[in-house]
Amino acid sequence: MLDDRARMEAAKKEKVEQILAEFQLQEEDLKKVMRRMQKEMDRGLRLETHEEASVKMLPTYVRSTPEGSEVGDFLSLDLGGTNFRVMLVKVGEGEEGQWSVKTKHQMYSIPEDAMTGTAEMLFDYISECISDFLDKHQMKHKKLPLGFTFSFPVRHEDIDKGILLNWTKGFKASGAEGNNVVGLLRDAIKRRGDFEMDVVAMVNDTVATMISCYYEDHQCEVGMIVGTGCNACYMEEMQNVELVEGDEGRMCVNTEWGAFGDSGELDEFLLEYDRLVDESSANPGQQLYEKLIGGKYMGELVRLVLLRLVDENLLFHGEASEQLRTRGAFETRFVSQVESDTGDRKQIYNILSTLGLRPSTTDCDIVRRACESVSTRAAHMCSAGLAGVINRMRESRSEDVMRITVGVDGSVYKLHPSFKERFHASVRRLTPSCEITFIESEEGSGRGAALVSAVACKKACMLGQ
């Protein structure tokens, strides 16, 4: 009897593995994704193909990295998701002549009506938060230079001027797309009239992360975010950046690689679950690469896999709870928690219980395998993109072996128990001629924006502006 049951459990697990095998990517698959990513990057950089390229390769006008001589107080704003952060950054000489960066910050959550109302409502709310922060720190009387981390696709015309191309991540505030974001912020500050600010720089969160990590390690020339969304930036040779005049030196390019796949480059790798996630998203047909990796989508992918296993009578005796059938019910943090389970399955059992399920031991094991399959594919897909960037940098610099540091931020990278190990191992397999160091950014977005502002202020002083 026991043997029969054991055989049935083994057969069930084997069927589960057959279904989950769809998520496995072979090294040849990853090399294919990497080569296609490089081709799209090239198209994004070139003037004649930029418009139709899915990977936009947006110039950021960040050319210099901090040298350690900029000092002063800077205000930093960070808008990239449902939370908005205001930070005071003091850049100065530390002990023994070292450079020191001290920060104080406060988080504000953005109400739904500000995210989806008008641009005026959104930026009025942001300036209200700045006003509140300055009151708390008794700094209303000071006109501070301000660095703005704005983590949406922007076409820069200068370091302090950028046109919002399109909202992502659930934002829909009308009247912002096609307009200068810094102008919208300046107008809102003017409307309030109770404080003055000098907006000197606007950067993407990947750029802010790279600059913040450069402060720790001067070989950091790539910034990457794996959180709600997924994106990367890197220092490109100016001669390859056709959208900006000049051939000397390097400029940081914001790849906006989340949109890779929007022209069909990933079609052969998309599964039924991916198509369902895409169809029910706020932007169907867009940001397809990001939807395979980002935390906004990972939990939902797992939920759809679990429903398939229920329908195949391989999980929960073929019956799903009402909660499990509800879109968004299986949160991405559950994926991390399930994979963090120590082996007694308590954590998995508790999560499934909150979803109205009474799982068996085998159910718990199957749910864990589903989570591992989805998150491992995410790590491997992400590795193909980064390997594409790094191999490109090595080739354009004609280096036999390139040493490089990548600064990384984002909740999936930082909080998932195995993502970074799987990701690092896969990147290294795909970049055999590179020695890569990964560092995690601390308060990256805010500190990085302030350091970019410090560079901009120093330049302005040198130019006598």
Rank of each mutant, 00 (worst) to 15 (best):
D400Y: 08
S336G: 07
H424A: 12
L185C: 05
E22T: 07
I126K: 01
F419K: 01
F133D: 00
Y215F: 08
I189V: 14
R369K: 08
L288W: 11
Q347H: 06
M41G: 01
L144T: 04
Q38V: 08
K142R: 10
D3F: 02
D363C: 08
T209V: 05
L451H: 08
Y215V: 11
E421K: 09
G343L: 05
V199A: 13
E331Q: 12
E157Y: 06
M197P: 12
K459R: 11
V222P: 04
C457Q: 08
T437E: 15
M115V: 09
L271W: 01
I348Q: 05
D135V: 13
M402A: 13
L122G: 09
E300S: 00
V455E: 07
A454M: 12
T60F: 04
V154I: 10
P359T: 08
W167L: 12
K143S: 06
I130V: 09
V401A: 14
D187V: 02
S336P: 12
V455Y: 07
K12N: 01
I189N: 04
E67N: 09
I436T: 04
G285D: 09
T116P: 03
V16F: 15
A11V: 15
L324V: 07
A11L: 13
E312N: 14
E319W: 09
I436L: 14
K56S: 09
W257I: 14
C364D: 01
V101G: 06
D4L: 03
L415W: 08
I189P: 02
Y125G: 02
K190I: 15
E237M: 04
M210E: 08
V406H: 00
I126H: 01
R186P: 04
G193S: 06
G223L: 01
G444Q: 13
C364W: 03
L144D: 04
E67G: 09
G117P: 11
E93T: 12
S281G: 08
G97Q: 15
M107N: 13
Q38Y: 05
A10C: 14
C230D: 02
D365W: 08
K161T: 14
G444H: 09
N180A: 11
M251T: 15
K140A: 13
V91E: 07
G97Y: 05
T103Y: 07
V406R: 00
P417S: 09
V200W: 14
V203F: 02
Y108Q: 02
E399H: 11
V154K: 15
A454S: 14
M402K: 13
L324P: 01
K296G: 13
V406W: 00
V253E: 00
Q337H: 13
M57P: 02
V91K: 04
F123V: 10
F74W: 03
I439A: 11
V302H: 00
G183F: 12
I366C: 05
G97P: 12
Y214P: 07
E128N: 01
D217H: 11
S418M: 08
V71G: 09
D217L: 04
E272P: 13
T332Q: 14
E112W: 04
K140G: 05
G299I: 00
C220E: 02
G223I: 02
Q347D: 13
Q337A: 14
S174H: 10
R36L: 06
R308T: 06
Q26K: 04
D42L: 14
A450W: 14
E290N: 07
A232N: 00
V305S: 04
M87Y: 14
D132H: 07
A10P: 11
G328D: 06
V455P: 04
S54K: 14
A176Y: 05
M197A: 07
Q239D: 10
H156L: 07
K136G: 09
S109C: 09
E9A: 06
A176S: 11
Y61V: 05
V401I: 14
K458P: 03
L20M: 08
A320Y: 04
K169T: 11
I404D: 01
H380W: 12
T103A: 12
G229R: 11
C461H: 03
A379D: 01
Y108T: 01
V335P: 04
K102Q: 15
N179W: 14
D187Q: 15
P284N: 05
F133G: 00
D3W: 02
S398Y: 05
D409H: 08
K32E: 10
E17G: 05
H50I: 12
I366K: 02
I110P: 04
V427T: 12
V200K: 12
K39M: 12
R428L: 14
Y108V: 04
A173C: 09
V277N: 10
E300M: 00
E443P: 01
L324K: 00
A320R: 10
S54I: 05
L270V: 15
W167T: 10
N313A: 09
E339S: 11
K414R: 10
T209M: 07
E290Y: 08
M210D: 00
G385S: 11
D400Q: 09
K13P: 14
A208Y: 02
L304S: 10
D311R: 04
N391F: 07
E95C: 15
E27N: 02
F260I: 06
Q465N: 01
L307Q: 05
L386Y: 04
Q287G: 08
D363M: 02
F269I: 09
M235S: 03
I211C: 01
E399P: 03
E51Y: 02
C220M: 02
D274E: 02
A53K: 03
C434S: 14
A379Q: 00
A460G: 13
E22D: 15
R192H: 11
K104L: 12
K39L: 09
A378H: 02
F148D: 02
V55W: 01
I348Y: 04
R36Q: 12
G193P: 07
A387G: 06
G94P: 05
G92F: 14
A259W: 14
K136E: 06
K15W: 08
W257Y: 01
E27S: 03
R368W: 12
V338A: 06
E17P: 02
A10H: 09
E128T: 15
R63N: 12
A384E: 01
N391D: 14
Q337F: 05
L146S: 07
L309N: 02
E48L: 03
L185E: 03
P284Y: 06
L243W: 08
M238W: 02
Q465I: 08
Q323E: 08
A425E: 07
R63I: 08
E51S: 05
S453E: 13
L309S: 00
L30I: 15
Q18N: 11
G229M: 15
A53V: 04
K161S: 05
Q323V: 09
R46W: 00
L266T: 01
D217G: 13
A379I: 07
G294T: 08
E112Q: 09
T49M: 01
L430E: 00
